[in-house]
Design a binder for these strands. Structure first.
Lengths: 213, 213
DNA sequence: CTCACAATACCCACAAATGGTGATTTTTCA
DNA sequence: TGAAAAATCACCATTTGTGGGTATTGTGAG
């Protein structure tokens, strides 16, 4: 049987190199390419198919969540293992709902990574222990259903949350986008509601994690 | 002449592995250990000396900036190359002021990393192109003097900024720390002044980058 | 034994964000 | 084309944060 073709999507060079080296110590795996963001990944996959993608959630230009959603449409059969430092429930849920098979935390060991890779290649769901814990806790405390539909943000909401994270006031955002300050407030309210946060601090963290700033 | 002894301080396993593998392809370098945070680094160095440390700025428990300051006291001769994704001026300046010799951005190439390592081992300052740009811009726009003294935060201020990032209101922070809400406001003001930010959003980003949340 | 600084607290005024409700227009897509 | 979703705006009231100044106490470094 032929080797498993793998693509690594991670903007951090040392991290991508590390993942590649770990995989190439195992026979049967071939790392076909390393890409720096979701756009590059989709461009590469357009003509060169692969079996598995190790995908960092936090990437510039096009992050893991958006990429996952696009992948699910374009390449439904490609297995994806999320490999990231982000441990909050919302990202785990988002990735799984969008179609990732596993979620590996970069704080884990080398052996764990290989376990995770083997599991997802068998089609099994894999979650790092800390990720699993995070999901359980999140479920109990916030009553967010991990199997529920992913609540996406609209493009306007993304513009707004980005400017909030850049320390703009509502008036400044309104001026920048040529809309009323009241409209900005409305957007902020639906953002806070969708992301289930209490204040701007929550919005800022979300935007930072997604590399929208 | 003997091999250069290197320690890698990075909580991200793939990243640490990647750095180790890149260095071990070059003869004359020996990676003595990989540690996950500043505390572990100092503990390791207490009895086992080394020549060079590759240090991620963003680490749990004890981050790169605090670690750098301690290193400067305890092991003044050990050369440190910061290796991180953080590209904002404040972190570059902080690390350099605290004694780092170089600052390498993880978006750089493998060749650049080796260049950086060779440069700092010669005792030369190295800055990734994007980091240099960030310093120049920061200097021009904010009139922050990169050669000025590093303004540290007090322990109380660190508690406060952490709770701000955790979406606590001033009243909640006051209740949690058993102090007056007015005192919290005073602390926030000096925080914003020291970190040169306009709103809570700036505080949140700082706390997140330093892994204080 | 000072002197600087950290931590505490209060005053006032104003700016900004949050929360609720309702509504209109435009866009998108089935 | 018709319903749903997105984007827009306007009120309201209330809470929260920002910005200025001032002052006291304790503590640690020189």
């Amino acid at each position: 049987m032929s080797a498993v073709k793998i693509i690594i999507a991670d903007a951090s060079m040392p991290s991508a190199v590390g993942l590649r080296d770990l995989l190439t110590t195992v026979s049967g795996y071939v790392v076909e390419a390393i890409v720096g963001n979701g756009k590059e990944l989709l461009a590469h996959m357009a003509n060169r198919p692969c079996d598995l993608v190790l995908m960092e959630v936090s990437m510039p230009v096009m992050d893991g969540i958006d990429t996952m959603r696009a992948m699910h449409q374009l390449h439904p059969k490609v297995v994806v293992l999320a490999v990231t430092k982000l441990h909050a429930v919302e990202y785990i849920n988002s990735m799984l709902i969008e179609g990732a098979t596993g979620y590996f935390l970069k704080s884990g060991t080398q052996d764990e990574l290989l376990l995770a890779v083997r599991a997802v290649l068998r089609g099994e769901r894999y979650l790092s222990p800390a990720a699993q814990e995070s999901v359980d806790k999140g479920y109990a405390h916030t009553s967010k259903d991990p199997s529920g539909p992913y609540v996406g943000l609209t493009s306007r909401e993304r513009e707004i949350i980005r400017l909030v994270a850049l320390e703009y006031t509502n008036d400044e955002i309104a001026a920048a986008l040529f809309i009323s300050a009241d409209t900005v407030k409305t957007h902020r309210r639906s953002l806070m509601s969708k992301l289930n946060v209490r204040s701007a601090a929550g919005l800022v963290k979300y935007a930072v994690d997604r590399e929208w700033i």
